[in-house]
């Protein structure tokens, strides 16, 4: 018989459950295990424990295995909270593009969480950090999102930060953003891309048949 059924060879069904649950200290230690699979599993099982956030972030910062990194970021996402948020924001400055973008993704998935940090992020001296802040705004459900984006359009000196804001408004902007958008190309007169992006955003916001005024 080519199709075989093995009921006895292992403990497949989920019934075994809880007796396997390891203690927290054991899991924390396992985050340093030399085997990536063990680290991955530890991260998955410790998810939800808000007191483990620092340990996970410490492990994450030196993690080289993509799968373990993925599981540690997921644990932060699932658990959330102040500590996770603060540590993730620091990762925006990482030299490692994968880690940086992983942190952005997780922060985007923590709606409402990054809100109170926004003012600080949007005035960070590093323009890349400001771009990441705009990326996070994209999926933040917060009443001040349009206001923040307009501020960027009016005040940020860096063309790529403004361009990122235009991109977000292309999808999420309302009519109240139009004046700030339309004024932007004058701030960067030598950048054809800015002109193009603004025209695209304005067209999307006005919708079909909405080109009144011109």
């Amino acid at each position: 018989m080519p199709l075989v059924r093995r009921d006895a060879d292992d403990n497949l069904p989920g019934e075994e459950r809880r007796e396997n649950q390891r203690d927290r200290a054991g899991l924390l230690e396992q985050l340093q295990d030399p085997r990536p699979a063990a680290r991955r599993r530890a991260a998955r099982e410790i998810a939800g424990d808000a007191t483990a956030m620092d340990a996970i972030c410490n492990a994450l910062e030196i993690e080289t295995d993509a799968g373990s990194r993925h599981a540690m970021l997921t644990a932060l996402l699932v658990t959330g909270g102040e500590r996770a948020k603060a540590r993730l924001l620091q990762l925006l400055r990482s030299e490692d593009a994968g880690l940086r973008n992983g942190a952005i993704e997780v922060l985007q998935g923590m709606p409402g969480l990054a809100g109170e940090y926004m003012d600080g992020l949007l005035s960070d001296p590093d323009s890349d950090v400001r771009i990441f802040a705009v990326n996070i705004l994209e999926s933040l459900r917060h009443q001040r999102v349009p206001e923040w984006l307009q501020q960027v359009l009016q005040n940020d000196d860096h063309v790529n930060v403004c361009a990122a804001a235009v991109d977000v408004l292309t999808e999420a902007g309302g009519p109240e953003c139009l004046p700030a958008l339309e004024a932007l190309p004058q701030r960067f007169p030598d950048e054809p891309f800015v002109d193009f992006a603004v025209r695209t955003a304005v067209r999307r916001i006005q919708g079909p048949g909405g080109s009144h005024g011109q």
């Binding site: 593009a97 994968g98 940086r100 973008n101 952005i104 993704e105 985007q108 990326n135």
Partner: peptide
């Protein structure tokens, strides 16, 4: 591009 979700440009 470099910075993108899920998989960055370098990777």
């Amino acid at each position: 591009d470099v910075n993108m979700p899920r998989m960055d440009g370098y990777t």
